[in-house]
């Protein structure tokens, strides 16, 4: 029960910020895919750099556990390509579709229904995919610092500085 309340409150805060940042809208998502409006990229990367520093810090203090998913090239590459086509048609991703609906953009409802159907189809296809796509290029639970053989505090500052330079470039270009 406690976990359910944690989930609801966390979602509430996140949904509030997504709406305030104006990243829930079809126009913003398609704007990014058409390389015309980088609002969602700014939001996402800001979230990533803050989260990256905080979570690695807490991890070093032994307060949290990282959740590293296996890198399997087959499903990641094929899945990402399929996702991109669907995202371009729908104009919302799974989380933002719920937020878009909250803002009154109820065309998201069709997307939500479609995504439930898509999840059901995936569950049916999974036994076949498991024997095919999922066997291609399994690299295991790897991370960038581990592959490069360096401490994560070498990678994190480089990533943060690179992101900030990218932000400066976006502002210069007025995107």
């Amino acid at each position: 029960m406690n976990m359910l309340i944690y989930g609801l409150v966390t979602g509430l805060l996140f949904g509030f910020l997504l709406q305030k940042g104006r990243v829930l809208r079809y126009d913003k998502q398609l704007g990014a895919l058409r390389l015309q409006d980088m609002t969602i990229i700014k939001f996402m990367l800001s979230s990533v750099i803050v989260g990256m520093v905080g979570i690695y810090l807490l991890n070093d203090l032994g307060l949290v556990k990282l959740s590293i998913k296996a890198t399997i090239l087959g499903p990641v590459v094929v899945g990402a390509l399929i996702f991109g086509v669907g995202w371009g048609l729908l104009g919302y991703c799974p989380g933002t579709s719920m937020g878009a609906l909250g803002e009154g953009r109820w065309d998201a409802l069709w997307g939500i229904l479609g995504m439930i159907v898509g999840a059901s189809l995936f569950a049916k296809a999974f036994p076949f995919l498991e024997k095919t796509v999922y066997t291609w290029g399994n690299l295991g639970r790897i991370t960038v610092p581990q592959v490069l053989g360096v401490n994560h505090w070498v990678i994190i500052p480089i990533f943060v500085v690179g992101t900030l330079l990218f932000f400066r470039w976006l502002e210069k270009k007025g995107l």
Binding site: G79, V85, G111, G118, L121
Partner: peptide, 11 residues
């Protein structure tokens, strides 16, 4: 789009 996006996201 929703069907396709979710199939890819899950994969």
């Amino acid at each position: 789009g929703g069907i396709v996006a979710m199939f890819g996201a899950r994969m």
